[in-house]
């Protein structure tokens, strides 16, 4: 449309203040709306988490997830079992480098930082087997550092726990 053609001169203008104001304010308003939409969701996810008595203890290391279920000291490698429709707290720690707890289907991601204990949480509405990769570069074995999260119905979970978790009490939800 504005391709160079002989005989036509370009429009001589240095700008337009009204336009400048419009294209400052309109994007600003859009961004205000986006911020207003983001903030409550963020607050719901990270700042006020729903309480839960189901705390899974996860300690990451090169290149495994070490999992302790509630009321048990038994350590599972790369395997977590949780009941469906229940808020699950994951108490994340790391014993060496930074790892990242990522379950794509749950839309959850939280770094595990050595020296800290960070709570991530999720609630799954569909039983199944979900892939659980590490999302932060953690060394040469980073790729392939991956676990599975098994989401059972309430009865199935009870059954699994009875069969697989040591019966001794006192372990409990640590902390």
């Amino acid at each position: 449309m504005y391709r160079d053609r002989p005989g036509r001169r370009a429009r001589y203008t240095h700008g337009n203040t009204t336009l400048e104001i419009v294209w400052t304010i309109v994007p600003a308003l859009i961004l205000v709306v986006l911020t207003a939409l983001s903030a409550p969701a963020w607050s719901k996810i990270k700042m006020t988490r729903p309480p839960s008595d189901f705390v899974v203890d996860v300690t990451a290391k090169q290149f495994n997830w070490q999992v302790k279920h509630p009321n048990s000291d038994k350590v599972f490698l790369d395997e977590m079992h949780v009941p469906v429709n229940k808020v699950i707290h994951v108490d994340l720690k790391s014993q060496d480098v930074i790892h990242s707890f990522f379950v794509p289907q749950f839309r959850v991601k939280q770094d595990a930082v050595p020296g800290r204990s960070i709570i991530a949480w999720f609630e799954v509405t569909k039983p199944g087997k979900y892939e659980w990769p590490c999302a932060e570069l953690c060394g040469f074995g980073h790729s392939g550092m991956r676990g599975w999260i098994y989401v059972h119905s309430a009865e199935d979970y009870k059954k699994w726990a009875a069969e697989n978790l040591t019966a001794e009490t006192g372990g409990g939800a640590k902390k």
Partner: peptide
Amino acid sequence: MVIAVPSAIKTFNWLGTLWGGRIQ
């Protein structure tokens, strides 16, 4: 979000520069 605004201003001004030009 705020830093996106000056970037938007720059983009609109580049388009404004093209507008009515004799583009080579």
